[in-house]
């Protein structure tokens, strides 16, 4: 249980004002699916909680056309899944978000919360990175747009300044024949935390890959954008030897640790396997678009 102040601002300005003027330990609550657990386990004892999920912009899903969307940072997995177009354009982002927790958790869990919780294993983060989404950040000094891969610095640490709030994600236009996918390795079939996660976002021209973004989760202090692997496959026809080489690039990009969830060797090996599987799925989806 916590004793302190619980604020429920209705506008971004109000939220930024509360957040930037607060002393002591302040936490933002979007869905709360990480925060409440952390409080219960005694990992954090905030004096103040600012609940940002009642702010309109944070709950909006805006279809900008051409496959571009603006998605509020507190939109829940269940809400995003109900949108009739988002999942068709960004199936990888949606499937990653939908893997978080149980059906009950899906009523709350959000892209913004998953990103700002800054767990190396957050499922939606690699998918957001691969999508090329920009995080819109409101703060006391105005608004800025930051590529998602630049937000997290390490476990529990973000690049955000005092008073800054991630409010929305801007997904770029969808090229023709492009799509994305996300896969994770967990020992169970659900209700688990990624030992390795891999997101792929590619554009095809016929059987040729003309653009790609590849991201890995749970293999380093933050989710990684693996440019090296993308460079290897861009321009190729995704032949086996190309994919093997890119898989090696994924393995080399990993800086994992040995822990109770997996060994260094295991995580490296699996990152390559998931990459190869994820790219097949993304390719099939892209060619159907």
């Amino acid at each position: 249980m916590i004793q302190g102040t619980f604020l429920t601002p209705n506008t971004i300005d109000e939220a930024v004002k509360f957040f930037s003027s607060s002393e002591g330990s302040v936490k933002l609550l979007a869905g709360g699916t990480d925060l409440l657990v952390q409080i219960r386990n005694g990992f954090t004892k905030p004096d103040k909680i600012i609940d940002i999920k009642n702010i309109r912009e944070l709950q909006e899903i805006i279809d900008n056309g051409n496959g571009s969307f603006t998605v509020g940072a507190a939109v829940s997995g269940a809400s995003l899944a109900e949108h009739n177009k988002f999942g068709k354009n960004w199936p990888g982002v949606l499937e990653a978000l939908r893997l978080i927790g149980s059906e009950q958790i899906q009523g709350r869990a959000s892209l913004g919360g998953n990103l700002c919780n800054a767990s190396p294993a957050g499922d939606s983060v690699p998918a957001l990175i691969a999508s090329g989404a920009l995080a819109k950040v409101h703060g006391p000094n105005g608004i800025r747009s930051i590529p998602v891969e630049k937000i997290n610095l390490g476990p529990g640490k973000t690049n955000l300044q005092k008073g800054e709030i991630v409010t929305q994600f801007d997904f770029p236009d969808r090229e023709p024949s492009s799509s994305d996918s996300y896969l994770r390795m967990i020992p169970r079939t659900e209700m688990d935390i990624a030992v390795v996660g891999c997101a792929v976002n590619i554009s095809m021209d016929g059987d040729k890959c003309i653009d790609a973004r590849i991201a890995l989760g749970a293999v380093a202090p933050t989710a990684l954008l693996v440019d090296q692997a993308a460079k290897i496959i861009i321009g190729s026809k995704l032949e086996d030897d190309v994919l093997n080489e890119a898989a090696k690039a994924c393995q080399n990009a990993c800086k994992p640790i040995d822990d109770k969830r997996g060994t260094i060797t295991y995580r490296k090996k699996v990152s390559g396997v998931l990459f190869k599987r994820a790219i097949q799925i993304a390719k099939e989806r892209a060619l159907k678009v």
Binding site: T189, E190, D192, I193, K260
Partner: peptide
């Protein structure tokens, strides 16, 4: 129960 993995239904 996150890292002590008893099977879930779908397992």
């Amino acid at each position: 129960f996150l890292d002590y993995r008893i099977p879930v239904c779908s397992d």
